[in-house]
């Protein structure tokens, strides 16, 4: 098992925590195999830093198969790197060439404060989901799974929206740091399915309100989010969200009553 022969220069953002200032630090990544994933390349760099007694580079990662949404990294001007439809953990070093300089930055957004180095705090996403990204059913007492037939095309479309992994690449890519692709994906998934209908208009209002509170920017339909989304969530989700929101706000009669905390 031999190592590879790629040598790269990394410009990595290092920042101890949200309170301190950060800066770029250059590292050499040597003997990199083109078969390595991007994160494995960072592992190699970190191993050598550790051997030298230096602090390894901190980055978020977990499943390393593109589904948990934990990894991030803004690589050479692209969230999750230059390859389409993959997360950083699925990006292989063969995408780069020997001698290349790679700039690695954290997601940049007011709503995603830096935790350390390349890791950011994405709890804003959780709070948006908590505001209404669910169907209010308790465990038990639900109808049979086949009680309500759902047209296959609707189920498939809902699935396409439901594949969002909550990584935040849409926010990172958007010039306005808007979270609308993320928010609209959940609204669309549940808005399409019959199970989501009873709370459809209530949900869109509470989720959008929370999104605004978190300090994300506004969508200007540039489509950068769609281009960078590792799960290729479509921009049409945002249009659906808008439609539901305006219906709810301008045409529906019911008021939303917030649950008591």
């Amino acid at each position: 098992m031999s190592n590879g022969n790629m040598n790269l220069t990394l410009k990595v953002w290092r920042q101890k925590n949200a309170q301190t200032a950060g800066k770029f630090v250059s590292y050499k990544a040597e003997n990199i195999s083109p078969d390595m994933s991007f994160l494995e390349m960072l592992d190699v760099v970190n191993e050598s830093l550790t051997h030298k007694g230096d602090e390894p580079i901190n980055f978020d990662h977990d499943c390393r198969e593109g589904i948990c949404g934990m990894c991030s990294l803004y690589i050479n001007g692209h969230p999750h790197g230059p390859k389409r439809g993959v997360t950083t953990c699925q990006l292989h070093m063969r995408t780069f060439h020997d001698g290349e300089t790679i700039t690695i930055e954290p997601w940049r957004a007011e709503a995603f404060p830096i935790v350390k180095d390349l890791a950011v705090d994405r709890s804003a996403f959780d709070r948006i989901q908590q505001a209404g990204g669910y169907v209010s059913v308790n465990t038990g007492g639900v109808p049979d799974g086949n009680a309500i037939p759902i047209p296959k095309v609707i189920a498939d479309e809902a699935f396409n929206s439901a594949t969002c992994i909550g990584c935040g690449a849409c926010v990172a890519a958007c010039k306005n740091a808007s979270a609308m692709l993320f928010v609209s994906a959940k609204i669309t998934q549940l808005g399409l399915l019959p199970q989501g209908q009873p709370e459809r208009y209530r949900r869109v209002q509470s989720m959008v309100a929370q999104m605004d509170e978190e300090g994300f920017g506004n969508c200007t339909n540039t489509g950068a989010c769609e281009a960078e989304c590792p799960k290729e969530i479509k921009l049409t989700n945002i249009a659906r969200m808008n439609n539901d929101y305006f219906s709810a706000k301008l045409f529906r009669q019911e008021e939303i009553h917030e649950q008591n905390h």
């Binding site: 799974g145 037939p149 498939d156 699935f159 199970q195």
Partner: peptide, 19 residues
Amino acid sequence: IDQCVAQGVPFAREYGGLL
């Protein structure tokens, strides 16, 4: 299965709309 369907889990379906 019933619980997950009620939560809005988009299971694969047949053309007739059933699971």
